[in-house]
Amino acid sequence: MRPPELFGLFAVPRRLTSVVLIILPFIAVIALYWIASDIRLADNPQDKLLPSFRQMGDAVWRMAFEPDVRTGTYLWWADTFASLRRLAIGLSLSAMTALFLGLNVGMFPGLRFLCLPFLTVVSIIPPLSILPILFITVGVDEVAKIVLIYIGTVFLMTRDMTLTTTAIPREQVTKALTLGASELGVVYRVIMPQVMPRLINALRLSLGAAWLFLIAAEAIVATEGLGYRIFLVRRYLSMDVILPYVAWITLLGFTIDWLLRMAVRRFYPWYARQGS
């Protein structure tokens, strides 16, 4: 008697089966696209909606490895760098805020009453709705985009950090004090190291929102950036550029997420499985 291979609650797929299962949807989507694109192009070689992989390859080559005639830069890399820079600055600022605010609000009851209800209310404001306010007050340059990413991610992360901090057993605090720690020592030497891996995980979860706000801001005003490029070439229906850009953004997002996951494993080996 073997457990079922595929179906039911007790299925235990063999190694080969599981690999096939993982790859299958990717292959299916690519194949489907290939067929659809072939059919359309056979119909009308000028069709722009579903460019062939060859056309997309050409476009990528042009964007990534040939300098732009107008600006002399390699657009693909310039866009990537600009976007990643905004993302990095915005997210690190909000991660730092979340850590310090969440930690202190979670630990000190006085601060909790002062900040938590306020944060809860403010976090409900839809960030995109205050984008015009940002443009008016801080201008339309880099700062506005970074602030948007910051506002879009900081509240969720702060709340997550607050909850994580308050969930740490009270025993740990007493224990640290009986070992001679000061109150600040408890917060920054005992509790902070314990919430760090959770902060990285909160960051991973916030990446999606950060990309959303980045691309939204770039679509409205920018001179470079991945989101800016997509919305710019949309006017010429350049699907051969848009599709590779979307794939590239996906790949970047996946890579960042993977790197963060590896960082947790590497630097916080105790985090994955802790009992008491």
């Binding site: 025993e171 740990q172 224990k175 009986t178 916080y268 008491s276």
Partner: peptide
């Protein structure tokens, strides 16, 4: 530090 404690759980720092 004058009084030490040991609990059933959570006495140790997991990190």
């Amino acid at each position: 530090p004058d009084v030490g404690v040991v609990y059933q759980h959570y006495s140790l720092f997991p990190h």
